[in-house]
Design a protein around this nucleic acid. Structure first.
Lengths: 226, 226
DNA sequence: ATGAATATGTTGCAAATGCAACTTAAGAGG
DNA sequence: CCTCTTAAGTTGCATTTGCAACATATTCAT
């Protein structure tokens, strides 16, 4: 087993209000172990069995889905601190509906929560606290999903783009901000056609609504109250 | 306080594996109380403060959102047994991002989970079990949201319709099945224009892909393995 | 530096969609 | 039974989008 950087882990909301000195015992209790992946490597495919929750220690992972027509839908783009499969494991769903793929070299910490969830919560003093934290994480995540829902519920490509950029701006709290997806991925995330999106981006730039260069975007028409 | 039909409540996953005879104490502990609403009555508006979780005892509720352009987005259509605001309360979010409106005469049981979530879990013997159940409910719900995500991620109106109908069919497990939304609401749910949707429905009927009359829909091209 | 691979932008065209206005059907209430 | 209201379907037209093919720019390995 590789040594685990406890510093990074304890900052995760999952382990909020845990004692640093207890972490070793906790991690052992949930059979924590680290695994490294290369860029473009697939962590698991849609349909694979999911047994443990993954916590991204380093790198980034995308959850994607492809429909019968071959359209690729990027369900989520997760970065350091992000959790993989927590809803599935908690809901007791075995087969993953999504494929998880690394978009860069990535380190994942696997946590086996089955024991925490299925056996008596008092078996280990940390269990009940862990479950409470898990509850909060799940609740926040379900609100995060509805953020994506807000974006792709927009009717036009322009509205989707704008909503996406606004969300990024609000999360990063700075105006020239960074878009972690390339154009192709952004189109897949927004569920639109890449070239149509590119056309719309150009138009919005021409109209002075936004500016961008590569991955750096600027919103030019923000109210002063934003 | 109105008398509460404990039969209906105990069947909810939230109270799974609770003793019927304990229910009275539990409900008291979480200040359970019933409220009735008329058809079209608004339970709360987007921006209102949410303090407790609502369990639909009877009737149906829609969660809707309207954007700056006035487009209405039906985020969810909840029926008997559905929960309102559970993710918000668990995540500690106060202001609701959605408006909740009754689509028929509706009875809601309000549960004050703040005590369960914020104070010591051992204060009441039921707390930890309740939190565990809550965990499962949240996890399942977050998977339900991604079901809607699957639907509106489809690129065309036809694909969205088909995906929606397939989902309904799978849930109801019968082939002429019932669509709980009227055409206007369905269009809002799918985030498309009503008349365009109507046009597409007609085409799909003409092509022998589906059949429908009012709220009864039939999928005509199912594989035998569905 | 060079060439290949990949990412991004552009554009014509056909198809899909939104919008508006209208027709038809269904349901509610007297 | 009739009338009013609401829901659903239809259609022409302008706009948007997807698709395909291509042009340009960037990145990366050698």
């Amino acid at each position: 087993m590789q040594p685990i950087n406890a510093e990074l882990i304890i900052r995760n909301p999952l382990f909020e209000s845990f004692n640093p000195e207890d972490m070793e015992a906790i991690l052992k209790c949930i059979s924590a172990h680290v695994k490294k992946y290369d860029r473009d490597q697939i962590i698991f495919m849609a349909g694979d069995k999911i047994e443990s929750v993954g916590l991204i220690l380093q790198g980034s992972v995308q959850l994607i889905k492809e429909d019968v027509w071959g359209n690729r839908n990027i369900v989520a783009h997760l970065e350091q601190g992000g959790l993989i499969g927590e809803a599935l494991v908690c809901a007791g769903i075995i087969e993953s509906p999504v494929t998880a793929i690394c978009t860069e070299n990535t380190t994942v910490l696997y946590l086996n929560f089955k024991r925490v969830l299925n056996f008596c919560s008092n078996a280990c003093a940390f269990h009940s606290k862990l479950i409470e934290n898990l509850l909060k994480v799940l609740a926040k995540n379900s609100l995060l999903i509805s953020e994506k829902l807000d974006i792709i519920s927009m009717r036009t490509t322009r509205e989707k783009l704008y909503q996406y950029l606004l969300t990024q701006f609000r999360e990063q709290k700075k105006n020239p901000f960074n878009v972690p997806l390339n154009r192709n991925q952004l189109a897949d995330y927004l569920c639109v056609e890449r070239s149509a999106m590119s056309r719309e981006l150009s138009k919005m730039k021409a109209e002075g609504i936004i500016d961008y260069k590569k991955h750096d975007f600027t919103l030019l028409d923000l109210d002063e109250n934003e």
